[in-house]
Design a binder for these strands. Structure first.
Lengths: 231, 231
DNA sequence: CTATTTTAGTGAACACTGTTCACTTTTCGA
DNA sequence: TCGAAAAGTGAACAGTGTTCACTAAAATAG
């Protein structure tokens, strides 16, 4: 059971990991520049001087390999947002930074981000996921990222800048949707930010602009004395 | 030049169009249920009892065929939103309906909507699109859909419910991003709407909830007498 | 009505793709 | 050192989109 390598790994597995990393690195390169369709097992194998079948000793399928690329990207995304979320700036700045950092990280690797949200689940998968508990969800990277948003909303409510009537989970979902949408719109339709007749506005500035609008949507309602019929 | 069929088409082209429609109909079926990867030229040809090469007498490539499917879906999306936008309801209801209808139509055909925004443009394509004028843009279906939003914002500003300081084009972009994001989030991550610990809320209701938040983000700022440092 | 040209449609082939599997070679532990 | 386990390979299978020389049928011209 025990070996001569109590903490270090045995040279065999170190070599193996090295090959595995080489595969992932090459795959990362190809995927980042050419996307999912540009990443072929055969070209990948050629790139690292192995036979195509060798890849299958390290990854069960192309999909499994891709899953690993996406997951590592999502962890990176989470880290980034977590970083700015932890920085002790002014609340408004921090909230805005969460959105802008999210969008910036997403658009920096468009293929990764798009691929991370590319699969349309089948009805069967949907039935499985339907039985996921809240605790299981926030254990995943996506869940953790989501938790950051929930906490942000609650903090905003505690500070009195966000409407206390909002359910934090739903508000967080709204923020995520808005950020997600802007990131994908910039990735898939980069026409829009440029076609506008106000050329003074760059893409990056619009992200902050959008983030401010999103945050404004969660602010405390405008007129307290007025009779407010809706909701 | 002139034929016996001044308004009607000649039987030859009518027959041809019939085959073309049959191809599109079969493609539509396969694509709607199995997505882009499930739509193969060969299976499609088999379905309509033609040889694979016959397809290429009607469509230059698989991509061209897909493009037509996506375009027709986008026109449908535009029609739907245009419909509710033209209905003379209360402004708030109408604005909310624009978002909810958009999201509902998108999620009703998840593969179509996801595919319509799936291509990551290459740097070359990006350079080409960068020289599109505003007029050219709003001539396209996407541009027209966008125009609806711009008009909506301007109307809201005229009614005094939206912040007059907003640039309508940018505000419209913000609305689109938020709607787009919610639609794709519901398509790709249907976990979220269900994992929330408030089971009284159904998906459809959340769309309206989100729409309200989005609209609130464009409303006139809260405190006029207060000193407002930011922006 | 015939001759010619245009069009519709096909089958075989090309160059790919992911994946499997029997097989050899190398490596490692006892 | 020997046997077992692991690493790696080549060939093959079943797909894919696409092309192209070719036939059969229809439309057109004389």
């Amino acid at each position: 059971m025990d070996s001569d390598y109590p903490l270090e790994q045995t040279p065999a597995v170190r070599r193996r990991n090295k090959v595995r990393e080489a595969i992932l690195a090459a795959a990362e390169r190809m995927f980042a520049s050419e996307g999912e369709s540009g990443l072929s097992i055969r070209r990948l194998a050629e790139e690292i001087d192995y036979s195509p079948s060798a890849i299958y000793k390290y990854f069960g399928s192309k999909e499994e390999l891709l899953e690993e690329l996406k997951d590592s990207f999502f962890e990176r995304l989470l880290d980034r947002v977590d970083g700015v979320s932890a920085a002790n700036k002014d609340f408004h700045d921090r909230a805005r930074a969460c959105v802008t950092t999210y969008v910036a990280t997403a658009t920096a690797r468009p293929h990764h981000y798009a691929a991370a949200f590319s699969s349309v689940p089948t009805p069967e998968e949907l039935a499985v996921r339907r039985h996921l508990s809240w605790d299981d969800f926030i254990a995943t990277p996506k869940g953790q990222a989501f938790k950051i948003l929930v906490d942000l909303v609650e903090e905003g409510q505690a500070l009195g800048v966000f409407d206390p009537a909002l359910e934090p989970v739903k508000a967080a979902k709204s923020i995520w949707a808005s950020s997600h949408g802007l990131a994908l719109l910039m990735i898939h339709m980069p026409i829009l930010p440029d076609v506008q007749p106000c050329p003074t506005q760059t893409d990056g500035d619009f992200v902050a602009y959008h983030a401010d609008i999103v945050m404004r949507g969660l602010a405390v309602p405008a007129e307290p004395p007025h009779k407010n019929g809706t909701r």
